[in-house]
Simulated scan of single mutants.
Amino acid sequence: MKKINFGLLLFILLTGTSCISSKKMIYLQGVDSLANPAQVIQQDYELRIKPDDQLYIMVSSKEPELLAPFANTQILGSSTSGGGTNIQETTGVQVDKNGKIDVPVLGEIQAAGLTRLQLADEIKKRLEEGQYIKAPAVSVRIKGLKISVMGEVSNPGVHEMAGDRITLLEALSMAGDLTPTAKRTNILVLREEEGKRHTYTVDLTSGRDVLESPCYYLQQNDVVYVEPNKSINVKGSSALSYLGAGASIISVLASIVSLIVVLSK
């Protein structure tokens, strides 16, 4: 009877330890419950221009002479395509602390808070209303889009964004995923919006928490921080990592030995 009880207790101890470990390590738990009905994907993920952003503004026209008034020290030059379209691109327009840009001839334009397409439409409208260029084509790009991923990831550092849409999961993948010593239930995202600094926390083990988070779609200059779990105290100390893991194993073994001693009496 004692042998049966011992086996049963040992099984509960080991399976209980395994379950706790899995729940702390597996991402997006419960996400299957969100599949029916299917979630509607947000359509407002396009980045908003912020103060201190660097913008590329490109204006093209089939009448090259109309672009002459916009030639200044910021203009790189013009190129002619097979269709005769002349294009001029600035080296970069800085968005000032008030969210405005200074465009040649057009003057100041409020850019912060607008998307790239909205700013391009505003510049195009002013060009047409002022009769500077007939049927202009305007495009805007944000230069040097980046996010920072710090802490318990395989490849921490500053990572460039390839487009307007990047998710928190993609950013962590770019950083090589979380290390085994990372705390997956409290990912911190720092974001500056409208002159204020906001902080968000995300539990990667919860599918609902990840997919419904306001920082599921990241923005330029966001900072993602992954803190270590309790098994280590100092970032980058492999000795402490092994020590923490060893301590956990010793604790389990000690519990098993104690059970053996009690049940053998």
Rank of each mutant, 00 (worst) to 15 (best):
Y45N: 02
L34Q: 00
D44T: 06
D53F: 07
Y45D: 07
A35S: 04
Q43A: 13
V40M: 08
L66A: 15
S61N: 07
S60C: 10
I49F: 06
Y56P: 01
P69F: 05
P69R: 06
V59G: 06
A71Q: 07
L55H: 04
P69N: 11
A38V: 13
A68S: 10
A68D: 10
P64H: 06
L66F: 04
N72R: 08
P69S: 08
E46W: 00
I49P: 06
N72H: 12
Q39N: 10
Q39W: 01
S60V: 01
I49V: 07
D44A: 09
L47T: 14
V40D: 10
M58C: 05
D53Q: 07
P37F: 04
N36K: 08
Q42A: 15
K62G: 03
E65W: 01
P69T: 06
P51M: 12
A68R: 11
I41H: 01
Q42G: 13
M58D: 10
V40K: 13
I49K: 09
D52Q: 15
V40L: 10
E63R: 11
L67N: 11
Q43G: 14
M58K: 14
I57M: 12
P69G: 02
L66C: 03
A71C: 00
L34I: 02
Y45R: 08
A35R: 01
M58V: 14
K50G: 02
D44G: 04
S61W: 00
S61H: 01
K50H: 11
R48P: 04
S61A: 08
N36I: 11
P64C: 04
S60A: 15
Y56V: 13
K50W: 02
S61T: 13
S60F: 05
Q54N: 15
R48I: 03
